[in-house]
Write a protein that binds this DNA or RNA. Structure first.
Lengths: 163, 163
DNA sequence: GCAGTCGGTTGCTTGATGCAACCAAGTGTG
DNA sequence: CACACTTGGTTGCATCAAGCAACCGACTGC
């Protein structure tokens, strides 16, 4: 993106996209949701160029979406965590996840499923537990592999070592 | 974006972003939600370069998010409309809208408010009517100017013609 | 001592974006 | 009739961001 901002929009959607609309940004946030906390982990997971990842992490820190904590002195090494502001992106990610599940389906079914931690119910497009009806937040949900991921794993195994 | 795709992600969020994650795409969808249907309207509203708008509209047509209908023959002129797939981006837009309202607040309050058509209730972050509890879709909601837009209009008027 | 790891930064290349000019087929105005 | 204006683009060029590989500093392991 040449300029990451959208001038004169006076719209909260545009404001949001100015912050998290850059390429890779939301996938980095998703990765941190998924428990990837370190530079190398995120870089391997995404395949993003290291300089771009560095710039995006810095931006997300500046915007108070991520925070980092030192887990090792000398050389200083950091882990990245979501702030409340970052956690509040969860409904956006859930909406994108469900839209993708519906319209860009992975062969074999959804690669990921989101479940309510407490009751195990499926989570709707709106981030609501379909079992108990609770309106969930990021902290209430866990992710489990879906049939699509298992199918892909089988396919990969089959390709490497045909039955 | 150099490549708009995110290879090897096996993730519906990434799949969604491959389709609507390019710069301007989601704002074009938002504009069509807002009733802008013609090339010139959208171009003026967004300030996007015309060649880029042309490319994005074509992509959104290819992806079956928009469809166009001829409203005039010779020269052929088209209006753009949302398909069901496009309408189903509504929860994503609502999530971004609310996140922006919360964390990138416009002075004077939200520039836009979303209301349930039937009962007039406010629409929550999850696209649920806070009045009657119904889980809403794009067709159930209308948009009304919020205090932020009025404040900005007053400020603009005041700047042009000081009291 | 020497390779390997981690978390970057730097430099170069490529390609997407922004911008202005142009175009084609009409419509309006005198 | 001439001429400007509108609409919906397309084309060409300049610029800036993304991808990629190489490098680096400070360790760790052997």
């Amino acid at each position: 993106m040449l300029r990451r901002d959208y001038p004169n929009q006076l719209c909260s959607i545009a404001n949001s996209l100015e912050v998290i609309g850059e390429r890779w940004s939301l996938l980095i946030v998703r990765d941190v949701f998924n428990g990837h906390r370190r530079f190398g982990e995120i870089q391997t997971s995404l395949g993003v160029a290291r300089n771009v990842l560095s710039a995006r992490l810095q931006r997300l820190l500046d915007e108070d979406i991520l925070e980092r904590r030192r887990y090792q002195e000398s050389p200083a090494r950091y882990e990245y965590f979501l702030t409340q502001k970052g956690l509040d992106l969860w409904p956006t990610l859930i909406a994108l996840l469900n839209w993708g599940d519906r319209y860009s389906p992975t062969p074999g079914g959804p690669p990921k499923l989101i479940r309510h931690k407490v009751c195990g119910g499926a989570v709707s497009e709106r981030g609501i537990c379909e079992e108990c009806g609770q309106v969930l937040t990021a902290r209430d949900a866990i992710q489990v592999p879906g049939p699509g991921r298992e199918a892909a794993a089988l396919a990969a195994a089959g390709a490497g070592e045909p039955a």
